[in-house]
Design a protein around this nucleic acid. Structure first.
Lengths: 186, 186
DNA sequence: GACTACCGTTCGTCAAGCCGAACGATTGGA
DNA sequence: TCCAATCGTTCGGCTTGACGAACGGTAGTC
């Protein structure tokens, strides 16, 4: 064997299946739209086989996702900075600390929301525009936030950011949870 | 629809060649290290063929680059904000304008350089650390800046940024050209 | 039950990717 | 000059991915 870490064929299989479920296509339909044989797609989703670039590309187009999303491991979409962590900004005043959580990229516009939530109420959001990012900073309480399939628990003082261009969730897990959500449009 | 074009086989060919040049391997050596036949690699670099995931993956490993860099179109490396463009920051004072060119990402450190250059002297830089970005703002004159294979001409007041982790160039095209270069380390 | 319309899987065939070997071209010594 | 080494390309073969057809399974309808 030449390479110790082979290509993640099983990962590709799962990625295809995941994206196919996301857009709600059957295996037959997706194969038809992508212009490939459904037998090929079946083998791919079962982890058997070693697709060519053409085949994967056709699938990416049909699924409406960039090619690389099918081969890259699910990107660590959620950035978490726990309370007290992160780059602190020095200050003259001892009783004052500022921490830079996320600098604003050039050209981005940011909308700010204040959240007050209690357990049981799940705020689900459909994807916003591409490139959108959401930044969450918890004031009090606890919450589960992040992309629908990669939630993270954040507590008071914690910060999390994640792409807003996929389905995502804000769910309080403690009474009296407050947070700020900044939605960043590119 | 995201993309109706076929897989960029020609782009893959150029990407492989570019990365191979970058690491300074011969075609034969790279094929040997990647564990593939050099005939296969030759065909790939000539744009003939439709490689399998296994083959591309092996090449990515041997080249030390993530798989996706071989298939994604060269990232729009150079950002240009012409003089007077860009997000202006409102000010009380009428005779004062501030424009946000690039906010500092969290955790980044920035070194600042002042440049005075004249035509004929080309400043070539080898790649810095991965993730490094360079920001150039021209005070007077004109210059060609950017990655070695994607140069952009900028004039007084213009701004350009590009990755610093690949060979890049600063070349004045007018006498008395001055600029600031900010090198940003992640 | 019988028919229809899908679903996803399996099988045989064909085309194409991949490989190893041989090739001409180029370079550097002895 | 001759030889050896390496470069990248080209040519048969073997392997395998992609295809189409047939398959069993599952609703939904008459």
């Amino acid at each position: 064997m030449t390479n110790v870490s082979g290509p993640p064929l099983a990962l590709i299989a799962r990625s295809i299946r995941r994206e196919r479920d996301r857009v709600g296509l059957s295996l037959s339909e997706l194969a038809k739209q992508a212009g490939i044989a459904k037998s090929t797609l079946s083998q791919l989703e079962s982890g058997t086989g070693n697709p060519s670039v053409e085949t994967l590309w056709a699938l990416g187009v049909a699924l409406g996702v960039p090619f690389s999303r099918l081969v890259d491991p699910p990107r660590p979409t959620v950035t978490v900075i726990r309370s007290g962590e992160g780059p602190a900004i020095p200050s003259e005043r001892a009783n004052y600390t500022a921490t830079l959580l996320a600098a604003c990229p050039p050209g981005a516009r940011r909308d700010i929301y204040a959240i007050q939530a209690a357990p049981g109420s799940v705020r689900r959001s459909e994807p916003h525009g591409p490139g959108t990012m959401e930044h969450v900073w918890v004031g009090t309480g606890k919450a589960l936030v992040g992309p629908a399939d990669d939630l993270v628990e954040v507590s008071a003082g914690d910060y999390a950011s994640y792409p807003g261009d996929m389905p995502h969730v804000f769910e309080a897990t403690e009474p009296g949870t407050t947070a700020m959500i900044v939605m960043e449009h590119i």
